[in-house]
Write a protein that binds this DNA or RNA. Structure first.
Lengths: 143, 143
DNA sequence: TATGAATTTGAAACTGAGTTTCATATTTTT
DNA sequence: AAAAATATGAAACTCAGTTTCAAATTCATA
């Protein structure tokens, strides 16, 4: 079990930097590449994906699949992560992503855990539906 | 607003047939193609995808994205659909898909709708997490 | 039961997102 | 500095799905 060493490189530094600077966004691998390349820190696709995988498996970064059938998004996780318990609500009308943080959800978690023997992972779960204005549009026959 | 006519073809008949026969499963487009091709009813990829899109937009079939980053699944919907309100729980350990039908979820829906102005679409939502035995494995350090 | 317009099919080429391969480059250790 | 370990990235690949378009099928009408 000789964990292989990890070398420090300019590319890795920059990738993590970019994620940290955008810690309130979800970035795609492509967006990261673009950002680094426009900053004259060229980095290859392979390297970006490879390092993202590593960061995800180390729990430093989270991978989200928000847009169904579209590319994955990545977000830096604060080490002291306190804002952990929140759901993502994705509106299939306008595409907006809402972050839902609410006491009620703890109850939901307990319920599902106690009654259905399943513990939900919020970081992986997205609730799809419609925000009120898109719902109204739908009812009015718009779209 | 001249809705164009729809022709009846052997391929379409077979695709819908396959979905109906498997209405308790989720099938991928590939699985449908394979099924039809082994039954000597060859059908092209294009046709399968095209017709599935049509069925989905007509509400006859539902499209699910269960495996993150993997291919979509399709399932026939009973016209008199009563078993509508249920969530999917996908265990990221063993991969098992649970169908969760429970009164409590109506409450959750109301809560999210009333307090957070968002109406969840169950057909599009998958709760990811771990079933009890995979959770136990995790705690025991297995896997 | 022909004819022809409308519609459907599917092979082939393409796209987008991500992975694999492997020779070269960089980092760290000695 | 040399050697060993690790990381990089161009290129070719995979996988799921889409686009194109000529040929085939379906259906309405004569």
């Amino acid at each position: 079990m000789t964990a292989s060493a990890t070398y420090k490189t300019r590319q890795r530094e920059q990738i993590l930097d970019c994620l940290i600077k955008n810690k309130d966004h979800h970035l795609t691998a492509d967006e990261i590449m673009l950002d680094l390349n426009t900053k004259k820190v060229p980095v290859g696709r392979t390297t970006v994906y490879r390092y993202l995988d590593k960061l995800v498996s180390q729990g430093i970064v989270r991978r989200y699949f928000i847009e169904e059938g579209k590319s994955a998004c990545y977000q830096y996780m604060e080490p002291d992560n306190t804002c952990n318990l929140h759901y993502h609500l994705k509106c299939t009308g306008c595409g907006h992503l809402f972050h839902l943080q609410c006491e009620y959800l703890r109850e939901l978690d307990s319920h599902i855990k106690d009654r259905h023997a399943f513990s939900v992972d919020h970081s992986k779960t997205v609730l799809y539906g419609r925000c009120s204005s898109c719902e109204a549009d739908l009812n009015r026959g718009v779209k």
